[in-house]
Design a protein around this nucleic acid. Structure first.
Length: 552
DNA sequence: CGAGTTTGACCGGCGC
DNA sequence: GCGCCGGTCAAACTCG
């Protein structure tokens, strides 16, 4: 097995095939041989396969190769040599017998061994031993090469991870660079509120200003918004209700009223920027049979509509991890391929996120930031967008697309390319939680993988969640969240984790390195204490959401 | 009984 | 001005 893996990673199809498919038969036959001849097991099969498939050395090493082969089948040495020559000359195993006509070299050998009841007895024991030694050496060398190869691969994956992490940091940093304005505003708003002698009702304060609202709310909300909001009993609630769709940040971000022009008209430049930020969307396309991909957040469905041009209904969700969180998402199946789930995220969370959710959220935020920058400076925008795409999907440049033509700048992460039918095809859905994005995790896994890639240290819990994630976001796991509310009660079992990893791997081999690192870290002892919300995509599972949410 | 989902109605923007 | 459409609301319903 190990060899199969190692070789497979090498991207040498021939080798891989050899190990995976032919090795078995060859090995089996070989065992027989061993019993008879007491030979070195692996060398035989390996040598045979090599010669048969690669045949590179055959011509040049005519003398030597035959010797090797002879060694293994010392009895039938001469005969085998002839066979091998024939094989090499024709590039295909020459049929030693009718039965083996179609078989590859391995079988031929086996057949040859069977045939070789006629023992020449001429070859000297010395030669045999020498040949054995050579084979053994080759085998050892092969092992060594494999080990070395593995090392290199590890190093590569490591470097890859670091690179990705740096990229994401850069993106985040750029976002933060841009945010100072926002923060400024927030500060100002806060101070204003305090002047008024009240502790902020973020939403209200913001409400009047559509563009600034959500952002501000998000910024401040972390601690105060929920409490205050709940606290803000009746009168304010009424007001809020009233304001409701017109002024609430949410409506701004998604609804028509949130359209940029309107916002611009009222707002200063930076505010328009913020509005744009909020408009930026991250769309994740992932293959998933689950109704929704898991991204580590808790969502409440607040509507469903039939969208034009798509027979599949579009579902609207809002984040319920904190009161007033402006983040929303739309989930819809692709009209062309209903196995593809399109999840569109918008907005930034105004509360701490569980590790599992960090990736998605960060990605969304980064995407928004990048898109924004792109819209502002054309050249830079392009650059940034490319960067974003790379950052989001470091391993595949083709998967992330950025749409400038859409009403809102949108980053689309297409996780559907990963060829992994396995996971989703499984008839009985194991658990609702697993639908992940085949990375989608499943595209679903995107977030997870992404996070993993970015932050190796993280625990694997993120992976499970991510499967849907499309938005790939970054690392999450490393944070511990103080808020009890945010902590996910469930801890993924190791088995779950492994299965998630397996799914991810199968879905997209390109993430193998990152996943391997993650798995390694887990197995290495880290137990994911973090939130793993394996199943949380279902809104129903969360115990403590006070969902009197939004509307009140 | 509370929390979440469903679903028809409503609202506002946009295009004709 | 009208109708279409996307998005949201909120009462009714379902579920645990």
């Amino acid at each position: 097995m190990e060899k199969g893996w190692g070789l497979a990673l090498e991207s040498d199809p021939l080798t891989t095939d050899f190990f995976s498919t032919k090795a078995t038969s060859a090995t089996a036959s070989f065992f027989r041989l061993n019993q008879q001849r007491d030979m070195f097991q692996f060398p035989v099969s390996l040598a045979g396969s090599r010669d048969d498939h690669r045949g590179t050395t055959a011509s040049s090493d005519d003398t030597r190769i035959p010797v090797d082969e002879v060694d293994f089948f010392s009895d039938k040495k001469s005969r085998i040599v002839d066979e091998d020559r024939v094989k090499k000359e024709h590039g295909e195993p020459a049929p030693s017998s009718d039965l083996d006509h179609v078989n590859t070299g391995l079988l031929l050998r086996t057949a040859g061994s069977d045939q070789s009841t006629v023992d020449d007895g001429v070859s000297s024991e010395m030669e045999d031993r020498r040949a054995k030694n050579e084979l053994a050496q080759l085998h050892v060398e092969l092992k060594r090469m494999n080990a070395e190869n593995q090392k290199l691969k590890d190093m590569l994956s490591h470097v890859n991870n670091n690179y990705t992490a740096l990229q994401m940091h850069l993106v985040t940093f750029m976002q933060q660079q841009r945010n100072p304005e926002t923060e400024h505003q927030v500060q100002e708003v806060k101070s204003e509120d305090k002047k008024h002698g009240e502790e902020i009702m973020p939403l209200k304060v913001l409400d009047p200003r559509p563009s600034g609202g959500a952002e501000t709310a998000e910024m401040m909300s972390t601690h105060s918004s929920s409490d205050e909001r709940t606290r803000s009993g009746t009168p304010q609630n009424n007001v809020e209700k009233r304001i409701g769709r017109e002024e609430s940040p949410e409506s701004e971000s998604w609804g028509p009223n949130s359209k940029v022009p309107k916002l611009n008209s009222e707002k200063p430049i930076d505010q328009s920027t913020e509005a744009a930020m909020r408009k930026a969307r991250v769309s994740v396309r992932a293959r998933s049979e689950a109704p929704m991909i898991t991204d580590g957040c808790q969502w409440r469905k607040y509507g469903q509509k039939m969208a034009k041009g798509n027979p599949c209904p579009r579902a609207y969700y809002r984040c319920t991890m904190a009161v007033g969180c402006p983040v929303r998402k739309q989930v819809q199946r692709c009209a062309d391929d209903r196995t593809i789930l399109i999840t569109t995220y918008e907005g930034n969370h105004n509360h701490p996120l569980p590790p599992a959710a960090m990736a998605m959220a960060s990605t969304t935020a980064a995407a928004a930031s990048m898109l924004l920058s792109g819209s502002m400076a054309s050249a830079d925008g392009i650059m940034n967008q490319n960067l974003l795409a790379k950052a989001i999907l470091p391993n595949s440049s083709t998967m992330a697309t950025i749409s400038a033509s859409a009403p809102f700048p949108t980053v689309t992460l297409d996780l559907t390319h990963s060829p992994n039918p396995l996971q989703f095809r499984s008839p009985p859905q194991p658990q609702p939680t697993q639908f992940q994005v085949p990375f989608p995790c499943q595209p679903q896994n995107l977030p997870q993988v992404f996070g993993q890639t970015l932050y190796n240290q993280s625990k694997f819990s993120g992976l499970q969640l991510s499967q849907e994630m499309g938005s790939s976001q970054l690392g999450h796991q490393q944070h511990q969240f103080p808020h009890p509310q945010l902590q996910q009660p469930q801890q993924p079992s190791l088995a779950d984790t492994v299965s998630a990893a397996t799914a991810a791997i199968t879905n997209d081999p390109s993430f193998t390195a990152a996943l391997a690192a993650a798995i390694t870290s887990i197995i290495g002892g880290a137990h994911p204490n973090s939130s793993s919300n394996t199943s949380n995509n279902n809104n129903s599972s969360n115990g403590n959401n006070n969902t009197s949410h939004n509307r009140q």
